[in-house]
Design a protein around this nucleic acid. Structure first.
Lengths: 239, 239
DNA sequence: CACGCCTGTATAACATAGTTACGCTAGGGT
DNA sequence: ACCCTAGCGTAACTATGTTATACAGGCGTG
């Protein structure tokens, strides 16, 4: 394994364990038994290292989403993709925030401004690769006639917006603490969007149930009832 | 004006102008003609200052949202609140990211962990105050019979998730560069959610149009056609 | 009025972390 | 055999958060 590779992996471990602020050149170098110079030799500085870490994290993200194999129910696949998105984020909130948030601070922030994707040759292709999994599921849903529309990209953008926002808000503590937000907010939200896109309520209910089954198979969450119905999400106690 | 107040305002200016990484005790103190000790006297350290800045920013956020006066069309109010949310974020992406802790490296990051709200006595009440504007609009929409459901809180959570995710993704450059995402993604998304919540398509169309009118009155965006219809958002060119 | 205390401030030093300068070594090509 | 380059280490430089310490002013109390 190259020194560069070891730096990236040590950096990721450090990022996930202690957060971005604990990522410093000296500790990192010490972790692989080298001097701080390695950071500059291989990455040009901490900013370059951050960039490499983010790219690597997006590759991990893409791998996680790629494990959702297309089934014969593309809408269920959309549910599962969303839940996988969430699972990846919650697996290491530090890493997730780092991926989307290295907008500026210590980092040279070469990243922040325009890590556009979408045809822009520069930027971060790893990011759009992640997005593509969702686009593909939406495309199949369109093809299967489950939802209306023609271009899957903006529709996938709708799903991405909602899951991304939900996950970030859930991570900061809204929606309760123990995954209550999924049945209370996320599932009804996804169902509403799909309803609005024209999916059949009965089919939707079945697809949502598959999403819940997946979730139950992933976590031991006996407290969450299978209420991933179209409406009637159990509302959390407020005040 | 107290020294504390001057520190906060100088900090906000610096944050908006140069981003969180430019926020350092020495420049900040110099900006108000004092020594770095003032930061420790008044805030206990940079982390405390960050906290104060975030609280202040959320107050500004709440003020911005409070300018959306309740009309006789609560669904239109939801649209306008969402667009105001976006406008506030885009007015200073640096500030917005800072507020939600999507900031990372250099920042004190004492913030990120648990600025929960929702009944949690500790945390950041300014945050839930912001949220309350949306809850109130949803409550009125429920009361007016525009959407189905009983508890406005989780429904507002749906809207918050989607607008929050959309804004963050838009800020990082997805959805194109010049606000194309609003007609292509955000408007259809909001409409779909409202449809899923049971709003009448004809009424929804009118409310969405009011949202578009508001947006047009806010910006000079002649390139965006009034296509904020329920479906048929103009899809952006892909590849 | 004098004393003591508390608060806010400044100066200066300390610790940490990103970065750079510079020299050394090893390997490969000429 | 010579030289060049890449990778690395040591050490220093710089920026920044933080702390120690002292000073000044206000205020209450004797």
């Amino acid at each position: 394994m190259t020194t560069k590779e070891r730096l990236i992996e040590a950096g990721l471990r450090m990022l996930e364990a202690e957060g971005p602020e604990a990522l410093n050149a000296r500790k990192l170098a010490a972790a692989i038994g080298a001097s701080t110079m390695t950071v500059y030799t291989h990455f040009g500085g901490m900013a370059g290292l951050y960039d490499a870490l983010i790219r690597r994290a997006f590759l991990q993200f893409g791998d996680a989403l790629a494990e959702v194999k297309p089934s014969d129910d593309p809408v269920a696949d959309v549910f599962v993709l969303g839940l996988t998105y969430r699972e990846f984020a919650l697996a290491s909130p530090q890493r997730f925030r780092f991926m989307f948030g290295v907008t500026a601070p210590g980092s040279g922030a070469a990243v922040a401004q325009d890590l556009t994707n979408e045809g822009s040759p520069s930027g971060m292709p790893e990011m759009s690769a992640t997005f593509d999994h969702l686009v593909e599921a939406v495309r199949r849903a369109l093809e299967a006639g489950r939802i209306r529309g023609d271009d899957p990209v903006p529709i996938a953008g709708q799903f991405w917006s909602m899951i991304h926002g939900f996950v970030l808000l859930e991570m900061t503590g809204f929606f309760g603490t123990r995954g209550e937000g999924v049945p209370a907010v996320l599932a009804p939200l996804a169902s509403n969007v799909l309803l609005g896109l024209g999916d059949d309520p009965a089919k939707l209910e079945k697809s949502a149930q598959k999403g819940y089954d997946w979730l139950a198979s992933r976590e031991q969450t006996p407290t969450i009832q299978p209420t991933m119905s179209v409406r009637r999400g159990r509302r959390p106690r407020r005040e």
